[in-house]
């Protein structure tokens, strides 16, 4: 049994699991400064202590309407930059065994790219989300 620690988060109206190894911290986010012309999923910038973090609206990445009022966020450092991923709510960290995605499971756009496996919590399957895949790709053409 190869169990890993996962953080349970409520994102885009459902529970998902995030690899705890990817997560720096969990914070209450406030004072977001908008970034004009940035991709929709970039909610803006926020100060986290003395650091500037780029706030990613997880709901937009997953193809839903933007988060109404950002509250909680998961902080992760990816490729030297700090990101805050907006979540609705968080639960415990718990060890789970990661299974590969069931064959033939078709997920729609946003979820498909972000899904990195499945864990089972009390018999209920939860999607494992890869935070890195939630960051909009720096595409010059989109600028």
């Amino acid at each position: 049994m190869n169990r890993q620690l996962f953080l349970m988060a409520h994102v885009a109206d459902r529970w998902v699991a995030i690899d705890a190894g990817d997560v720096d911290s969990v914070v209450d986010i406030g004072g977001i400064v908008a970034v004009p012309r940035a991709p929709g999923a970039v909610r803006g910038l926020a100060a986290l202590r003395s650091r500037v973090v780029t706030v990613i609206d997880t709901r937009v990445t997953l193809g839903l309407a933007p988060t109404a009022t950002p509250k909680r966020a998961v902080i992760a450092q990816i490729d030297g930059h700090h990101y805050a991923f907006l979540v609705d709510a968080l639960e415990d960290i718990a060890p789970f065994e990661r299974h590969p995605l069931s064959a033939g499971l078709a997920l729609d756009g946003g979820w498909d790219a972000a899904a990195a496996g499945i864990v089972e919590r009390d018999g209920e399957p939860l999607l494992v989300i890869d935070l890195k895949a939630l960051i909009p790709v720096a595409d010059r053409a989109a600028a």
């Binding site: 400064v33 970034v35 012309r37």
Partner: peptide
């Protein structure tokens, strides 16, 4: 000034980001 995240830099109009005394990030 520090470089901003790639998704932000890709907008083509920012040179970086900074955190002034106000505590609010500034581009």
């Amino acid at each position: 000034v520090k470089p901003a995240a790639p998704a932000v830099m890709a907008c083509g109009i920012y040179a970086g980001q900074t955190l002034p005394d106000s505590g609010l990030p500034l581009l």
